[in-house]
Amino acid sequence: MSADLLSVSGLTKRFSRGGKAFAALDGVDFAIAPGETLALVGPSGSGKSTVARCILRLVEPDAGAIRFEGQDLLALSGAALRSMRARLQMVFQDPLAAFNPRATVARLINDPLRIHGLVPRAERPAAIAGLLERVGLSPDLATRHVHEISGGQRQRVAIARAIATKPRLIVLDEAVSALDVSVRAGVLRLLKALQDEDGLAYLFITHDLGVVRAVADRVAVMDAGRIVEQGEPAQIIGAPTSATAKALVSAAPRLLGGETKQTRE
């Protein structure tokens, strides 16, 4: 257990909707090793994003434990929590929503460098340029506003912002779902390259098994706030045992996946 970078156990969160309480998370357990990519898949409403938000301390769980680098994450608060955040980052699905609409690219990347005091002020422009180059963007983009660049470029900026503080784990919440397919391949390749260079671990949240197969070391399948199946991608895609995994596998779009599918319901 001590070798785990992140371990989550018994994570429970209840929300109330229309006066009725329902469990968004109902005892979730999983762990991620350093440098590993764990994909968390499931239908919408299965609780995947709530898991992400609990780990990032954006939502407070009702019960359970989260340990990160051996530390009790839920016990941290204030300045200690903020300084831990350098090592645990997140990339959101829609970068346009995840960036202050008034910000320039430079300011977005500058913020984590400034907040965590990683780079002296005078050296920050060079550091920002370096980070932009690392994610495959031209340093000239630094002066642009976020609405002046393309969706793929925005997601690369989000990645640059996330890696600025040299984190050990990045939570990717549907980070490639909104991208054009031709752009998506490039972003996935970038994530893989960064992982190889820095030994980053990813928690990759998605509903797309194709993406899972391309990037994940392990998969956890969620449904109704629980993890119903865990294993290697090839195993889960090839021989799913849970009903949810079976449904996900049979629903995945295939190139000319047989005429039977379109008439069956």
């Binding site: 919408s44 996900l248 629903a251 319901e265």
Partner: peptide, 12 residues
């Protein structure tokens, strides 16, 4: 929509 619901709507 997620892939499972997507497949249902496609079939519909």
């Amino acid at each position: 929509l997620d892939t499972i619901v997507q497949a249902e709507i496609m079939a519909l």
